[in-house]
């Protein structure tokens, strides 16, 4: 009898826990879909969590504050209207149009249906868009994403972006890591820009099957406080393949080819 009671009690507990778990599941924001004819337009401070799909048009600086999230569905095309305004608004880091994230950004493309970020055709000639800026972001997840023509594809300040199959093409800087945080980058390429991946301060890089190609300046710059773990990294046809402390020369040797200078060691002073 007591065993029976125990079982009933366990079942009840289980039901209670399950029930609580079910009750506690929050419904996320509803997917809102833009079309070519009527893109979903967004700018300014994100007042609520958003889940967007289809054609999305960012018509001015977009700010995802701490505690809020922006999620982008597979196959979306995010068109950013670039500008060269004189604005110097405080939250934003650059004069151009930027996506500034302190909260959560989930760009969830899928194999064969990536999410694409590019410049809107209404942008004045000669202007581009600033890029995606993570400032102590709560989460930044990019899967199957193409980021085209940004000033800095991804700027990470004290953030830990996770990238899977991401291509950053034609950016002045592909990725710039500053402060702490870890970049996990699995698959994709940074290509056709000025500089590929720059790491300053004490960020950590975990790179797998990443190609850094055809950039006019450095492929990879590793300041002395940065750390690198890599597998299958390819750095080709850049001006300077890798700039890093001498201790990385051997481990990067197989990654580097066809750069004007494959490896440029940081001076002893920089390493100290």
């Amino acid at each position: 009898m007591s065993r029976c009671r125990q079982k009933i009690a366990m079942l009840l507990t289980l039901l209670l826990i399950t029930g609580c778990a079910l009750v506690s599941v929050e419904s996320g924001p509803v997917l809102q879909i833009g079309t070519v004819q009527k893109p979903y337009e967004v700018r300014g401070l994100l007042q609520q969590d958003l889940y967007l799909g289809g054609v999305i048009r960012i018509t001015g600086d977009l700010f995802v504050p701490a505690g809020r999230s922006l999620q982008i569905a597979p196959g979306s095309h995010v068109l950013v209207v670039g500008n060269d305004s004189t604005k110097i608004d405080p939250e934003y880091l650059d004069k151009g149009t930027e996506i500034l994230v302190k909260g959560r950004l989930i760009v969830a493309g899928e194999k064969g249906i990536p999410v694409k970020f590019s410049l809107d055709e209404s942008t004045p000639k000669g202007e581009n868009w600033t890029g995606i800026e993570l400032v102590a972001a709560e989460a930044a997840i990019f899967k199957h994403v193409d980021i085209l023509g940004a000033e800095i594809g991804i700027l990470s300040l004290d953030s830990s972006p996770q990238l899977t199959q991401v291509n950053i093409l034609g950016a002045r800087y592909g990725i710039l890591m500053q402060g702490g945080g870890e970049l996990v980058y699995r698959g994709g390429r940074i290509s056709g820009g000025d500089a590929g991946l720059l790491c300053f301060d004490y960020s950590a890089l975990s790179l797998e099957q990443l190609s850094i190609l055809d950039n006019l300046e450095e492929g990879l710059y590793l300041a002395s406080g940065c750390s690198l773990q890599q597998q299958g990294l390819q750095i080709n046809r850049n001006d300077l393949g890798a700039v890093a402390s001498e201790s990385y020369r051997t481990s990067l040797q197989v990654s580097l080819s066809d750069n004007r200078i494959d490896f440029k060691p940081l001076p002893e002073e920089a390493v100290q």
Partner: peptide, 28 residues
């Protein structure tokens, strides 16, 4: 977050310190 920002202004800065901000001095 930003130290000093200004536009369309005449500004003189002497013997001052702009330290540890995201942007130091930014102006147009």
């Amino acid at each position: 977050f930003n130290g000093l920002q200004f536009r369309d202004s005449k500004v003189v800065i002497e013997n001052s310190r702009v330290v540890g901000n995201l942007w130091g001095i930014r102006a147009v």
